Simulated scan of single mutants.
Amino acid sequence: MTSVPDTASSGAAPAAAPEGTMLSLNNVEVIYDDVILVLRGLSLAVPEGKIVALLGSNGAGKSTTLKAVSGLLPSEHGEVTDGSVLFRGQDITTMDPAERVKQGMSLCMEGRHVFEHLTVAENLVAGAYTQPRGNGAEDLEVVYEFFPKLADMRSRVAGYLSGGEQQMLAIGRALMARPTLLMLDEPSLGLAPLLVQEIFGYIKRLNEERGLTVLVIEQNARRALEVAHHGYIMEQGRIVLEGPAAELRENPDVKEFYLGLGEEGGRKSYRDVKHYKRRKRWL
């Protein structure tokens, strides 16, 4: 487990991505409206065939990180102003979003964003827009086999599904693009605990049974770290801690700030802990 140095302020160059890395962000800086700095030299790596969790509180920059990876920043007046985003070793920092999907990246956005006026089947077909015609029927059956509930509801209008059913539909729609990297933004948002457990069960199965690489953005740190292989903790646009998920689950500061297992009235920021320990070490 590693506390991450502040490369944005130190000027240190990021380490090269290790072999077998599917996605890497290297010292990425993101600015909105030419003035609002959100990501401050962020670096992370997603190994092929693994689940990586990116954790942090509201406003830490988690969703901005996904938008930088998926190419959606320009639609919100944002841009990557420094650093690079690599996918399978290729620099995709300025690549068109649709081209990134063709390269094998799929994103499930926060809030699910299903097409409420379309049926379940029509929503799924819409997810295959980058695929050659003729693959749709085969891919539909794969999704229905993985999500039997969707098969039973294929003719239902998506707007009438429950939150958990809509989340399954959003994941199923992303799978229709035949991704090698699935990115999920707050998949537990607004769901009851049992549904959260079910959704993360599906995420784990997708990784184990289909070998899908997953990057999941979550505030529910406990659930995310149960299925992830590796985790990053983010605050104020920077990575402040990273390590194997099992080690993060046992870290006392992570327990206090993100798992709700610490003392009441404790410290509010993991970055504060780093600074406190640093000061204590040098006093």
Rank of each mutant, 00 (worst) to 15 (best):
V46N: 02
Y258A: 08
D185K: 06
G89H: 12
M168T: 02
V273G: 00
L23N: 00
M183W: 01
E48Y: 07
M105G: 08
H77V: 07
G89Q: 12
Y144C: 09
S188N: 04
A177Q: 01
T180R: 12
L283W: 14
K67A: 05
T119K: 10
V143Y: 01
K268Q: 13
S3L: 12
E48S: 11
K204W: 08
T21M: 05
G41R: 04
G164R: 01
V69R: 00
L66D: 05
T213A: 09
M234W: 06
K277D: 07
R222T: 11
I199P: 00
V85K: 07
V142Y: 07
G127A: 08
F146G: 10
E79T: 06
S63T: 15
G59R: 05
R156D: 02
E19P: 04
N251H: 15
L25W: 01
V142M: 13
L241C: 07
Q219T: 09
W282T: 13
S106R: 03
L195C: 03
L150N: 06
R154F: 04
E99L: 12
V157N: 05
G83A: 10
G71E: 00
L195V: 15
K280P: 00
K277W: 09
L150T: 06
N27I: 00
R112F: 08
V142D: 14
L23H: 00
A45L: 03
M1R: 08
R154W: 04
L191W: 03
M176V: 01
D253K: 13
L191I: 05
L259N: 12
I233N: 08
M176T: 00
H230P: 05
K67N: 14
R223G: 05
D185E: 09
D34G: 11
P47D: 04
M95R: 11
E235C: 10
L181Y: 02
S106P: 09
V142I: 13
A151F: 07
P18A: 03
T65K: 00
G89N: 09
R223F: 12
C108P: 08
L175Y: 00
G260A: 09
N58V: 10
H229W: 12
V142K: 15
A45R: 09
L25P: 03
I239H: 04
F87H: 11
K149D: 13
K149H: 12
Y232T: 09
L39I: 06
P132I: 13
Y32E: 06
G231F: 05
D33A: 15
E256C: 10
L261N: 11
E116Y: 15
P47R: 10
L161M: 11
D6N: 07
R222H: 14
G262H: 08
L118P: 04
K274A: 09
F200Q: 02
A16C: 01
V227Q: 03
H113Q: 14
A8P: 01
S70N: 08
P47K: 07
R40W: 01
A15L: 08
A121M: 14
Q167H: 10
G41P: 04
L206V: 10
E186V: 03
L150R: 04
A126F: 14
M234C: 13
R223D: 13
L259M: 12
L182H: 00
P5H: 07
G111Y: 13
V4D: 00
A126H: 11
S75F: 15
A12S: 07
R178M: 01
R210Y: 15
G237M: 10
N220E: 10
H117K: 15
F87V: 11
T93F: 01
L169G: 01
G83N: 10
